[in-house]
Write a protein that binds this DNA or RNA. Structure first.
Lengths: 175, 175
DNA sequence: GGCAACCAGTTGCAAATCGCAATCGGTCTG
DNA sequence: CAGACCGATTGCGATTTGCAACTGGTTGCC
């Protein structure tokens, strides 16, 4: 939006786009939670983003070319947000941040399991997941068959929830 | 400082620590510019950080365990900031962000060259540079000898500056 | 010893951003 | 046609940002 770039440094420019507390969380929910509508992003957000901020971030991410928006044929008012290639390639950034967080910060077990698997899988697993995202968001069919990285992460998450969740209400928050 | 964590997600927790426009730039200058004093960080900053914000971010990074501060024996008032292991391990995060930025944003040639080399070098080069940072900041002697990654990046940067800089004042900003 | 330059911050203040709650106009469902 | 659902927008107080000036101290130099 407002252009006065502070410098032409790649790190600075990246921070000017996604260097805030919410943008990457929105992208995280799209990537790992497959949230595609405004309402999904709003109400299933672990961190309770408020609607004006979500609206603002979606607009910024659209302008930055990280997301695209299409009309949902099933509902005239509903929009479907998709990642662009540029957005999909934020996965390694997010994975790297998650790996650092899970190592040094007080991450809960159920929310950390995905980060650990993704770290252990390394760049190869990231690339595989990016191919899956290209299929979901760009319609580019992937080569590999069988269970996806996304499914494997989700299953691992749910196993932790089930194991820890006996009688524990906290564990039933997410789908 | 203020604790009310929004969630125990590794990505969220990482963003709560370094998810702003300045923290990672300070760390970048420490890593790639070897700035160790307040004044160095303040005056050699490409993006012209102001002193109150720098002071605040240094305090936050100290509290987060990413930096440590020691007195400089050569000057009673001078402090020396060093990276902790935790801070050094932010290098892959920064490298990944730089790689993304250099691919998708209007990065200047001289400021992009390091990011490109670091991307081409891959995780192996990052690990090597992290060993160099452990030597500089933690006093842990590294095994490998010969020119360091830091030196190679710096040399490449200066070559671009020299090549592009014929009569161009912009090129003589940094050391 | 005195003075200018340097050091790490701090303070005051205006502007911008954040975050909550309420609300809006339109759309779909029963 | 009523009520739930949809993607936002608005109002407003609290917080954060960014600039400029300043503080209290240290050091080098003549």
């Amino acid at each position: 939006m407002n252009d006065p770039k502070r410098s032409g440094c790649p790190i600075n420019l990246t921070l000017e786009v996604v260097g805030d507390k919410w943008s990457l969380l929105v992208i995280r929910d799209i990537i790992f939670g497959n949230r595609r509508h405004f309402r999904e992003l709003l109400t299933h957000s672990e961190e309770r983003i408020s609607s004006n901020i979500l609206a603002d971030r979606l607009k910024t991410l659209l302008e930055a070319g990280i997301l695209t928006r299409a009309d949902d044929p099933t509902h005239k008012q509903k929009g479907v947000y998709s990642l662009t290639e540029q957005g999909i390639e934020l996965l390694p950034v997010i994975a790297q941040m998650a790996a650092w967080g899970v190592k040094y910060l007080p991450v809960t077990e159920e929310l950390g399991i995905r980060a650990q698997l993704l770290r252990d899988g390394g760049p190869k697993m990231w690339a595989e997941m990016m191919d899956e995202l290209r299929e979901i968001h760009l319609g580019i069919k992937r080569r590999k068959t069988g269970p996806t990285v996304g499914e494997r992460l989700q299953r691992a998450y749910q196993e932790v929830v089930a194991r820890r969740g006996r009688g524990d209400a906290r564990a039933r928050i997410s789908d």
